[in-house]
C-alpha cells in the first residue's frame, strides 16, 4: 500500500515534470510587454531601480500584504502554547572571542544595513535585504550570549514589530484623502517610499530576528 503510493506519486510527478518541460520549450512571444510599460513609467515612480519601483510603487499593495504575512508568522509562533521542553539544554558558553567579534561586527552590520536601505532606490538593495542584515546582527548577539532570547515581547517590542506595517498602512490611509489607495502624489513618491522603507527595515529586522529569538527561548526554559 505504502510502496504503491510512493510509486504512484513518483510516476505522476515525473510525468508531470516531463510534460511541463516539453510544453515550455516552444512558447510564442508574450503578448504583454510589461518591462516596456515599466520603463516608460519608471520616472514617475520616485525611484530609479526598477525592482524597487515594482515592489514599493507599482505593486506596493502586494508588499503591504506581504509584511502582514511576515508579522502573521511571528504572531502564529507567539500564539503557540508555551511548552516547556524536556530536552536538555546546553547553556551558552560566553566565548570571549565570539563576544569581542560580535561587538566589532554588529556596528558594522548596522552601517551596512543603513547603506543597503539607502542604495535600494537606485541599485539592488532595499528594506528586505537591510532588514535581513539587522536580523543577522540580532542573531549574532544572541549566539555570543549578549542578547537574551525573547520570552514574551512586551508592548514596546510589539510596537516595534508592528511599526513597519503601521506606517505603511498610515501612508495608505493618508493617501486615501486624495482619492486612491497607495497612489503617491507626484514629487512625493521618492520621500514617502524612503520613509516606508526605513520603518519596514526596522520592523523586518525585529520580526526576522524574532522568528529566531522566540524559538530560541522555548529551549532555554528547560
Amino acid at each position: 500500500m505504502k510502496t504503491l503510493l510512493n510509486v504512484a506519486v513518483l510516476f505522476l510527478a515525473g510525468a508531470f515534470g516531463l510534460a511541463l518541460g516539453w510544453a515550455i520549450l516552444d512558447l510564442p512571444v508574450a503578448a504583454v510587454n510589461l518591462p516596456e510599460q515599466l520603463t516608460a513609467q519608471l520616472d514617475m515612480s520616485g525611484v530609479v531601480h526598477p525592482v524597487t519601483a515594482v515592489l514599493l510603487n507599482f505593486r506596493g499593495y502586494d508588499t503591504l500584504l506581504e509584511i502582514a504575512v511576515l508579522l502573521l508568522a511571528l504572531l502564529g509562533i507567539l500564539a503557540l502554547p508555551r511548552h516547556v521542553s524536556d530536552h536538555q539544554h546546553r547553556p551558552f558558553t560566553a566565548n570571549p572571542v565570539l563576544q569581542t567579534l560580535a561587538r566589532v561586527l554588529v556596528p558594522l552590520m548596522l552601517l551596512v544595513a543603513g547603506y543597503i536601505l539607502w542604495a535600494g532606490a537606485h541599485r539592488p538593495g532595499g528594506a528586505f535585504q537591510a532588514g535581513a542584515v539587522l536580523a543577522g546582527a540580532g542573531v549574532l548577539l544572541h549566539l555570543a550570549g549578549l542578547l537574551p532570547a525573547w520570552v514574551t515581547p512586551g508592548r514596546t517590542l510589539r510596537a516595534g514589530l508592528a511599526v513597519g506595517l503601521l506606517v505603511f498602512i498610515a501612508v495608505a490611509v493618508a493617501l486615501m484623502a486624495q482619492g486612491t489607495l497607495l497612489q503617491y502624489p507626484p514629487g512625493w513618491a521618492g520621500a514617502l517610499i524612503l520613509m516606508i522603507e526605513a520603518s519596514l527595515t526596522f520592523s523586518l529586522g525585529l520580526i526576522l530576528a524574532g522568528l529566531y529569538l522566540i524559538l530560541a527561548d522555548s529551549r532555554a526554559q528547560a
Binding site: 525592482v51 515594482v54 502586494d62 506581504e66
Partner: peptide, 19 residues
C-alpha cells in the same frame, strides 16, 4: 524586473511559512 519583484515577495512569504 516584474517577476523578479514577485519572486522577492514570494521568498519573504516562504520564509514566513518556513518559520
Amino acid at each position: 524586473p516584474v517577476p523578479q519583484a514577485m519572486v522577492l515577495t514570494g521568498i519573504v512569504v516562504a520564509i514566513a511559512a518556513t518559520a
